[in-house]
Amino acid sequence: MQDIIQISGLSKTYATGFTALKNVNLGIRRGEIFALLGPNGAGKTTLIGIVCGTVNASTGTVTVDGHDNVTDFRAARELIGLVPQELTTDAFESVWATVSFSRGLFGKPKNPAYIEKILKDLSLWDKKDNKIMTLSGGMKRRVLIAKALSHEPRILFLDEPTAGVDVELRKDMWQVVRDLRASGVTIILTTHYIEEAEDMADRIGVISKGEIILVEEKKELMRKLGKKELALQLQQKLTALPPLLADNKQLALSADGSELIYTYDTQAERTGITRLLAALNEAGIRFRDLSTKQSSLEDIFVGLVHQDRNGAAK
């Protein structure tokens, strides 16, 4: 099936001379949750801005469900809802008025029942007549999401939606996102809570210094790049690695000497575990317990960006 968003050869150089995006090519699949990860200033918000129309591209094209987002911008933008990163809301309008305004702006006829449903889903219903300026930061974030959903978009962009948001709202929000996905809405999110990407996303893209350095199924990514740690809890503390194991670079002794940590690549032809265990046995080291731990997406991400910064991308 054709990608719902196709980004080809997209570059952006700001008037200041800063190049935010370099020849970005990216396809977003229909109905997926795509998480875009990257350090601050990597180009995430610029990329979203260009797709949504708030930033002009320098070169390259974006099509949204087959509609070019410049030449056929009306058809393209109708499909998109955007939740910006900053808490940019009106101040004196009521919640109800501002959400209804958004729906009108996107050319949709009035539908109070639908607005009511959104406000209830986001626990905003009892605040509907409040002025926005009287709301807390978390509530304002909900208002922004309600505005983005007001015109029943088929694609939802969430730019750092959980920055500075309490646990309860995050739960509420992810439930809304799951419901949307179940109804067929495509969701693109940026977040720096990597556990959220790990929890929610189908695919992960990593952007660094304006370049997409990786796009992968989340499971595949975790499998491919996943390092595992084997922790061996020793019966007797050690002060140093035994001479027999001293040259094993994958092995380390914990600070208090009670644990040996062996890091290995699950994809390697040989993990070296058997050899390690045999060697430990030979050295007369006995252990009480062992555990293995898969590295998290965060570790993978930090590793990737670090690699990229050192000029050894991919």
């Binding site: 949504c52 708030t54 009306r74 998109i80 955007l82 910006p84 940019t88 702006l105 050319g107």
Partner: peptide, 14 residues
């Protein structure tokens, strides 16, 4: 000033 212009720019309007 408030930043809400993002909505006008991302809406299907010229």
């Amino acid at each position: 000033f408030t930043g809400t212009i993002y909505e006008l720019l991302s809406a299907p309007i010229s």
